[in-house]
Design a protein around this nucleic acid. Structure first.
Lengths: 173, 173
DNA sequence: CTGATGTTTCAATAAATTTTGAACCTAGGC
DNA sequence: GCCTAGGTTCAAAATTTATTGAAACATCAG
């Protein structure tokens, strides 16, 4: 936000001033942003993940904020999102105050967790509604074609719910 | 939009006036809207699909607009979207002027087509960028951990691209 | 306990997306 | 050709979603 007083070089401790993203970092970020977009994950979140992904070691809050030129609020919310979806983990060194973040080992597992958190609740919530819609249609003697469709939809939903815990186990992978 | 002049019953030909959605129809629409939301498909599109899905026969433009209480523009765009993604097909009767729409036989195939249209372009577009990011990292002697991550990302992307045409064949299913 | 650092919250604002509706095409009947 | 039912386009308006930043909160060193 505030123009970081170019080269506060000499002094220590006075607002570290971070480099903006390098071209190759931007390229990777674009990729993650694009993929995230498909699942409706906000740009800021994808950017944070990309930065952690391409960085050598874990990064702390200020680093992330500085390098991405992002508000505190966004960084906080972004980290929360990534934490909640088990896509990053904190490597707090003993005796240190701040947390430092790095991506979870398996990107695959991360994506699975993300998908699960979006799809599962929808399926669960839908279950009774779908059954009700079908029952209703049957009772009102709807066209066989419609009944057939609704029946299949219900089967799908049930099967998806049965399979979910197998493919996407609640604890980490 | 315009309050449809309640019960223009007697007269033929004067704006047919359609019923609003019934509770069971709303319930199904909610389900589709929710699922569509995950993929970033707009509400109006999901509603159109739901209506076609729960209706006995194919519906024409005016029916859809009337029952959903939606603008012409939205119906037109929604049908275009669904057409483009092979989720509906038109059943134009011979000698009839208007087209009538019904859902494609397989919802599964529809979803696959939809997914493909979103994911594939992203993967394709990303390919060169990802390779470049990796090459760049290697050349700059980045940390092995980072190289490893980027390598895996590249492998994923390639594999996904190879598999895509097998799992999601371009022609209809 | 106190002060300072580090983080979260959330109302206000900005940005992106969706919907509307009126003007504009287009094909077919006459 | 001319007219009209049927449909599309697209700029403006409405709605939704994301971001910001200041204030509140939490935790730890001293």
């Amino acid at each position: 936000m505030k123009p970081p007083s170019e080269k506060s070089a000499g002094r220590r401790k006075s607002r570290p001033s971070f480099e903006p993203l390098q071209p190759h970092e931007i390229e990777l970020a674009d990729f993650f942003v694009r993929m995230a977009g498909i699942l409706g994950v906000p740009r800021s979140v994808a950017e944070i993940y990309a930065l952690l992904y391409i960085s050598s070691g874990p990064l702390d809050f200020d680093h992330i904020q500085g390098r991405l030129g992002m508000s505190k609020g966004s960084v906080s919310q972004g980290l929360k999102f990534l934490r909640d979806h088990e896509m990053i983990l904190s490597v707090k060194e003993k005796g240190a105050r701040r947390e430092r973040w790095q991506p979870t080992p398996s990107l695959a597992a991360s994506l699975v967790a993300l998908l699960r958190s979006q799809v599962l609740p929808a399926l669960e919530q839908a279950q009774p509604g779908l059954q009700h819609v079908l029952a209703d249609a049957q009772q009102r003697g709807a066209q066989p074609e419609v009944i057939e469709r609704l029946t299949r939809l219900n089967r799908w939903n049930s099967r998806a719910l049965e399979l979910a815990p197998l493919l996407l186990p609640p604890p980490g992978v």
